[in-house]
């Protein structure tokens, strides 16, 4: 039995992530926690999040979770979801500029609607992820599978070899990245029906 910690830093509603994780890992212990000790103690860590970058970073510092997140992201399977992906980057343009955790080098940028490619913001709905590299997280997931997205900002990592999935919304952006034991996804696997459940299952199996 594995212990899977879902990091709760007060920034989002974690009930969907918790329910989906329990669904794919019925024999594991799933804990929603802000305790550094419990996170350290877990075998795998899920780092979700919603909301604005600045509030997220403030919450992370308030709860003394920055070092724990950095440490755990080096030591064990670690999955960032949505805002939990964005704050892994160095810096976000959101809230007139917010320094983030700098686990991946690169910026978080806002979608822009242009005359030639008019897009609505937030990017809300089901969109395709094109696989860019092989990775165990893609087990049994077809190329160009649909995931559910809700976000207004997207990541632009400097090291493009970390990009394992891309999505087109106006322009093409990096929707899934991975390096060593870290995987991070902009979409919401917990809301992406069978494809999303397979993705979470693959993470649990890593």
């Amino acid at each position: 039995m594995n212990i899977i910690a879902i990091i709760d830093y007060g920034m989002s509603n974690l009930s969907s992530v918790e329910k989906a994780t329990k669904y794919v890992a019925p024999n594991d212990s799933v804990v929603v926690t802000s305790s550094p000790r419990e996170i350290d103690n877990a075998d795998k860590v899920i780092f979700p999040g919603q909301g604005a970058a600045k509030n997220c970073m403030e919450s992370i510092y308030d709860k003394n979770l920055d070092k724990i997140i950095k440490k755990n992201s080096k030591e064990k399977p670690f999955l960032g979801i949505c805002m939990g992906m964005q704050v892994l980057m160095s810096y976000s343009e959101e809230n007139s500029g917010t320094n983030c955790l700098d686990i991946f080098e690169g910026k978080v940028k806002k979608f822009k609607t242009r005359k030639d490619t008019k897009i609505k913001i937030p990017h809300m709905g089901w969109n395709k992820v094109s696989k860019k590299n092989d990775h165990p997280i893609w087990y049994k997931i077809k190329d160009e599978s649909y995931f559910y997205f809700v976000h207004s900002y997207f990541i632009d990592p400097i090291d493009k070899s970390t990009v394992i999935g891309e999505t087109k919304y106006g322009d093409i952006f990096s929707s899934v990245i991975a390096r060593d034991n870290i995987v991070a996804i902009q979409g919401h696997p917990e809301k992406s029906s069978d494809t999303g459940l397979q993705f979470l299952k693959n993470f649990i199996g890593i």
Binding site: T117, I119, H123, G125, W126, N127, K128, Y146, F149, T167, K168, Y169, G170
Partner: peptide, 8 residues
């Protein structure tokens, strides 16, 4: 733009 139209 490849976001799909949703049916609810």
């Amino acid at each position: 733009m490849s976001i799909t139209k949703r049916i609810i």
